[in-house]
């Protein structure tokens, strides 16, 4: 930054920064975001590490499309099926919102499993990340439960009868089973209350729980950092220094990591 700035430019910069400074002085949020963005991550972080944020993206897609669906959906057994038809065939782009919510759910679940697989293979559940693994397992169970409750909402034959059986299966659990089953049903039989219950669980309780768990999860990710790939020759924590970049003849494709290292960080 050897170039001299003109007075005018400095003035402009100060004016532009003012709102940020104002916010920082009163909340410290700017510093927080700055820490989040510029914190160091292991130099060998790679595409495998994107599975977590990909899961988060799928979850956000569910939130947005879900909120829109809730504006048109009617959670009572008489009109639920018709309101789904209405969304699919009449509301402008309703099919897109519903389709993205329906298939986004599957993508979310698949990504959760893939992310868990990467964490397992990287041994990233080991000290000191045990707690974050546990939060992850809870996220997986809660996510599956979210899928289960959403499945009933279109109120078609398959959904209805699968849910009858699913609730009955809950009922077979020792001790808590019958209680759980009647809690889900909202009575001794599947009836109008069941749909309302599933709807409330699906759009309030479970997403709330997921949001809370995800917040905790990400807090721990930022606090503890992510694990280097186990095969990396310079894995952080192994105490091995990075290999010197190989001498580059013009024909060899430059290794991206070496290129990154060469660039000055601002």
């Amino acid at each position: 930054m050897a170039r001299k700035k003109s007075d005018r430019r400095r003035q402009l910069e100060r004016a532009a920064m003012y709102p940020l400074d104002w916010l920082e002085e009163r909340s410290g949020l700017v510093g927080g975001v700055r820490y989040f963005l510029f914190r160091k991550v292991p130099g060998d972080t790679n595409w495998f590490h994107t599975l977590g944020s990909a899961t988060l993206t799928a979850f956000l897609v569910q939130l947005v499309t879900g909120v829109i669906l809730a504006m048109y959906y009617k959670p009572d057994p008489k009109s639920a099926h018709a309101s789904i038809d209405h969304i699919t065939h009449e509301v402008t782009l309703g099919w897109l919102v519903r389709g993205m919510h329906k298939w986004g759910a599957s993508v979310f679940i698949i990504l959760m499993f893939m992310h868990m697989g990467r964490v397992f293979l990287f041994g990233a559940y080991k000290y000191p990340r045990e707690l974050n693994w546990i939060i992850g397992v809870l996220l997986l169970a809660t996510g599956l439960f979210e899928g289960l409750t959403g499945y009933l909402l279109p109120f078609d034959q398959t959904a209805y009868w699968a849910t009858v059986v699913a609730i009955n299966i809950n009922g077979t659990a020792p001790f808590v089973g019958p209680f759980l089953a009647s809690l889900l049903r909202g009575g001794a039989e599947i009836g109008p209350d069941t749909l309302a219950r599933f709807y409330s669980l699906h759009m309030l309780l479970i997403p709330g729980a997921l949001l809370g768990l995800i917040t905790l999860h990400l807090y721990l990710v930022i606090r503890l950092g992510v694990t280097s790939p186990p095969w990396s020759s310079e894995a952080a924590g192994s105490g091995r220094p990075p290999e010197p970049p190989p001498a580059q003849a013009g024909l060899v494709r430059p290794r991206p990591r070496a290129a990154v290292k060469g660039r000055p960080t601002e």
């Binding site: 292991p42 130099g43 972080t45 595409w47 994107t50 990909a54 988060l56 993206t57 952080a236 990154v260």
Partner: peptide, 25 residues
């Protein structure tokens, strides 16, 4: 090790994350 040899989340890891998220959507 991360402090000494790591790279900042933005833009390196964030770039990968953004591309992957776009693929997901």
């Amino acid at each position: 090790d991360v402090k000494k040899r790591g790279k900042p989340f933005y833009p390196y890891a964030m770039f990968h994350d953004t591309v992957m998220s776009l693929v997901v959507v």
